[in-house]
Computed example of a mutant assay.
Amino acid sequence: MTMSDIKFNPRILVVLLIIVFISVIRIVMPYSDNFDSIAGFSAVGAIALFGGAYFNTNFKAFGFPLAILLLSDIFIAQTSGYGFFYAGWYWTYIAFILMVFAAKFLLAKINVLNFVTSVIAIVLIHWIVSDISAMYIPGLYEPTLAGYWKCLVAAIPFELKFLYGTVIYGGVMFGAFELLKVKYPALSLVRVTAR
C-alpha cells in the first residue's frame, strides 16, 4: 500500500465531532440552576450507542467514547465539586464498556427497531451494573442482595431520566448522522475489499 492508496474519509471526524458536541452539553449541565432535577437526563447512553454503532474499529468504538467520558468526568469533578473518584466509580466505566459492546452487536444494521432495542438494552445494563457502585458508599445501602435490590428500586426514577436522555440525544445524534450520510455519501463506511 502506498500513500496514494490511503484516502481521507471524513466519517471519523464527523462522528467524533457529533460526540464532542453532545459531550459539551453534558459538561455544562452541572452549571444549570436545576441540575438536580436533570442530572440523570444524560447523553452518556447515546454516546455509547453512537460510538459503538459508527466507529469501525474496536479501538475507536471503545476508545473515543471512553476518553470523552473520562475527560468530561474530570472536568465536571474539577469545576463542580461533585468528585470523580467516588466509591465504586469504576462500575460506571464497566457499564459504559458493556453498553458500547451492546451497541456494536445490536446496531450492526442501523434502523429504528435496532435503535429502540439497543436503547432498552443499554439502559438495563446501566441500571444493573452502574448501581453496584452505590454498595461501596458507606451507610447508603447494606452490602447484601437485599441492599442491592433497594438500590435498584431507588434508582428507577434516575434510570427513567437516563432512558429519556438516551432516546432524545441518541435520536438527535443518529438522525443527524444519517441525514448527513444521505447528503454526503462519503460519510458512509468505506469497506476495503481484497484485490
Rank of each mutant, 00 (worst) to 15 (best):
I12E: 12
L13P: 10
L13C: 11
V14A: 04
I18P: 06
I18L: 13
I22D: 04
V28C: 08
Y31K: 09
F35G: 11
A39R: 08
G40M: 01
G40N: 05
I47Y: 02
L49W: 03
F50K: 01
N56L: 06
K60G: 03
K60M: 10
A61G: 01
L69F: 07
L71E: 05
I76N: 03
T79A: 03
G83H: 02
F84E: 03
A87W: 13
G88F: 12
W89V: 05
W91C: 07
W91I: 01
L98H: 05
L98C: 04
F101L: 12
A102P: 00
L106Q: 04
L107W: 03
L107T: 01
I110L: 07
N111W: 14
N111S: 10
V112P: 11
F115C: 04
T117A: 14
V119R: 05
A121E: 07
H126T: 14
W127I: 02
D131I: 01
Y141R: 04
Y141F: 01
Y141N: 00
G147F: 01
G147C: 06
W149G: 08
L152V: 02
A154M: 07
A155I: 06
L160T: 08
F162M: 12
F162Y: 08
Y164M: 12
G165R: 09
Y169K: 06
A176E: 02
A186Y: 13
A186H: 13
L189W: 13
V190Q: 14
R191D: 14
R191I: 14
